[in-house]
Design a protein around this nucleic acid. Structure first.
Lengths: 228, 228
DNA sequence: CTTGTGTACTTGTTAGACAATCGAAGGGCG
DNA sequence: CGCCCTTCGATTGTCTAACAAGTACACAAG
């Protein structure tokens, strides 16, 4: 019985389940009954229910009326939806940042961190990569946009955890493209930045889709002018 | 005691409270205790609690730990945040639609509805206006973007209900600008459409801000080239 | 093989209760 | 007289126990 009620028992339980889903301990479609959760955390059923409902609202779990909650199964089409949504949001963010020539310090730092780690573990890229993109969005200073992006990031992490060790992208390329994005923003070239981002995300997207058994689009390939 | 439990009692109660907030029956900062809600709808307290938590998650109500929930007070800065978020989302949507020259039928229909009503009631514009913008976003076909926009629309309706009868915008101008937006999309001129939308939303935004006691930006005025 | 039924499991909702915490009112002290 | 501290009421967080309602699966009958 580990009492971790830092802020709220419900929040603590939801957090733990979230972590277990991300880590892969709870596979897709795994069933989570209220009673089961309640007894495993040694809380009452309504408490477990609240935690489950919180996660359902987040989209991490799915459930119909009177049916037991299951870990969401993000298929290839969901991955594409998520990444396209990212692209829509972020490309507009880049345009707005470029029009003010705002290059966020945090983004520069995050990309330096990516350059620093030349270790072979591809999973280490995820954290600074996310930080890079998140800091760009946050630099807009719009509360609601940041919140929207946060929910997307959660889902991105989620499906990334499913293709952890696949090594779909080259770290050097990621870092180089990020660098180029920052330069374009500084030069006020919003349109070019938006286009580069589309390629950047499109490539990750279609490779991820392919890795999950979907049919990859043409964006999976490297554009010739960037190969050098 | 009208049993309207179409899908769920919790959902029905949340719906009703939502409507009452929108209608202005529940003013900003109005307190909603769990017991009060429970007894007024003749349900148990946990049920009322669930409904309140749902609305808190939506952002319609706010509450801290161990404090009673209150109707959210969307001040001028929130209104600006909401409208800017709309502009960010929608301008990107217009670009993408224009690149495929996709003019959604539903948007055309909604704008015809605006043209049809020449009645003096300015509140009648709200519904088709919302439908116009929503149908554009939905035409993208991205589930998550549509969901994000939906939450914004909810908040927009909310703050519009606070300035109901102010008659901030001319119906003819709204209709004309919508028409122009559709034309630009059909011609593939995404950049121009995005710019016009910025003006369109920026004007509504700053006038709404001013009406709520904030300091209006320069976007509140009509650009000269559109006055004719 | 399909259909119908029944039982077990799970969720939706309720009731009542207790502890923890917040806000405000009231008393003591400078 | 004003300010700080204590106390108390109100409200929320959580629990236990229970019943109703719906789903899913197995099993039997046609």
């Amino acid at each position: 019985m580990s009492r971790v009620s830092a802020v709220s028992i419900v929040e603590a339980i939801a957090s733990d389940i979230r972590a277990r889903v991300f880590s892969g301990e709870l596979p897709a479609l795994h069933a989570l009954t209220e009673t089961e959760v309640a007894s495993s955390y040694d809380v009452a059923r309504p408490t477990a229910k609240a935690a489950i409902e919180k996660l359902v609202a987040e989209g991490l779990l799915v459930r119909g009326v009177h049916k037991t909650a299951r870990v969401a199964d993000l298929g290839p089409e969901s991955v594409r939806d998520i990444y396209l949504a990212r692209a829509y949001l972020e490309s507009e963010v880049l345009r707005r940042l470029a029009s003010g020539r705002t290059v966020p310090d945090e983004a520069v730092r995050a990309n330096k961190d990516i350059a620093a780690l030349k270790t072979g573990a591809p999973l280490d890229v995820v954290e600074p990569d996310m930080r890079f993109h998140t800091s760009l969005v946050d630099a807009l200073g719009n509360e609601r946009i940041s919140k929207m992006y946060l929910s997307l990031v959660g889902e991105v992490r989620f499906c990334m955890s499913r293709v952890q060790s696949l090594h779909l992208l080259d770290t050097n390329l990621i870092q180089a493209e990020h660098q180029k994005l920052l330069e374009l923003i500084g030069e006020g070239k919003g349109e070019a930045a938006a286009r580069l981002l589309d390629e950047h995300l499109g490539r990750a997207r279609e490779r991820l889709v392919a890795a999950m058994g979907g049919e990859a689009g043409p964006e999976a390939d490297l554009p010739s002018k960037l190969t050098g």
